[in-house]
Simulated scan of single mutants.
Amino acid sequence: MITAATSLQSARPADWRDFFALTKPRVMSLVIFTGLCGLLAAPGSLHPVLGFTAILCIAMGAGGAAALNMWWEADLDRLMRRTAGRPLPAGRLERRDARDFGVALAVASVGIMGLAIHWLAAALLALSIVYYAVVYTMWLKPRTPQNIVIGGGAGAFPPLIGWVAVTNEITVMPLLLFAIIFMWTPPHFWALALFAQTDYAKAGIPMMPVVRGEKATRAQILIYAVLLCPIALAPFIIGAAGALYGAAALILSLAFVALAVPVFAGRSEEARAEKRLFGFSILYLFALFALLVADALLARAGLLQ
């Protein structure tokens, strides 16, 4: 059913806001933040202009991949309430415009990263774009309920790229940052999928609750929340982060597990447990990475042992 609001959106001609919407700004804010945290926490430094350029390239690459995702999934987005108002299903943009915009952003981001920073960071950025736009969007998402598990790697690249932009090498620590987001992604998205599963079922997307059922999804959420704890603590355990980060990672991870327990126990009234976990999971990642940067900066200033 087309609502009056949707009709008004469709009637409005396309403008810059629609192209900006193609980049998924809410998702991009997390991409920019974790990429910046990787850059700031890495040993060494970049000139501020180069640092800004690296983060801009990460944002452009993420925006380009998101635009390609919307181009490919325009027909699916039209079937789901939470995505029907996007520029393509609402009819404000042509699909080819979204495709061309996404390709332009992706190519420009990789080229600028390579020329301004170095080609290792550019290669990782290119890999992240292909992973999200092709491996996840075109291959995994429509075929397997493990789409979020395997596809979680797409969102885990930004801190790795930010770190490597500074150091020009791939070491254990940036791989741990990658692993944290990789393990965080399934419980984060499956919590959302539990209270949005009707939309996914209508669109024919094989999300875990739709294919395997709620019971299996709830168990997987708790398992991943528990597995996330040692991975989040690993930077402290290997001595790459200090006590501030270690204490924060322990407290935040235990809270994550505590909120996953009622989700595992069963559906609460109006999916409140699932919504609480989903909301906290966003706070969790922002807080964890912010405290990682604070720990690193304080240690460099000699304020932490």
Rank of each mutant, 00 (worst) to 15 (best):
R17L: 03
I55L: 14
F278E: 08
A271Q: 14
M28S: 11
G204S: 10
T23N: 04
A126M: 12
P174V: 00
I2P: 05
T144Y: 14
G162R: 07
D75S: 07
D18K: 01
L79C: 03
K275F: 15
A294S: 12
R17P: 02
Y132R: 10
A203K: 00
A201H: 01
A219E: 14
W16D: 01
R12H: 04
P262K: 06
T3K: 02
A216K: 09
L36R: 04
F195W: 11
P186D: 14
A98Y: 03
A249C: 09
L8D: 06
V166P: 10
F236E: 09
G239M: 05
A154G: 02
P87N: 02
V134G: 06
P25C: 00
A219W: 05
V211T: 15
G114P: 12
F178D: 00
T23M: 07
A121G: 14
A225M: 08
V293W: 01
L250M: 14
I237A: 09
A260C: 15
L50N: 14
I58N: 14
A287F: 09
L40F: 13
L115I: 10
A201R: 08
F178P: 08
N147G: 00
A179T: 13
R99H: 03
P187Y: 11
P145V: 04
A247Q: 12
I150N: 06
I205Q: 02
G35N: 06
A108L: 14
A240V: 00
A216N: 07
M208A: 12
A201E: 07
R96A: 02
L39M: 10
M207L: 05
G63D: 06
P209Y: 07
L36F: 11
A123G: 15
I170Q: 06
E214Q: 07
A203R: 00
M60T: 00
N147V: 00
M207R: 03
A5V: 09
F195H: 13
V293E: 03
R92S: 04
F19R: 06
R212T: 01
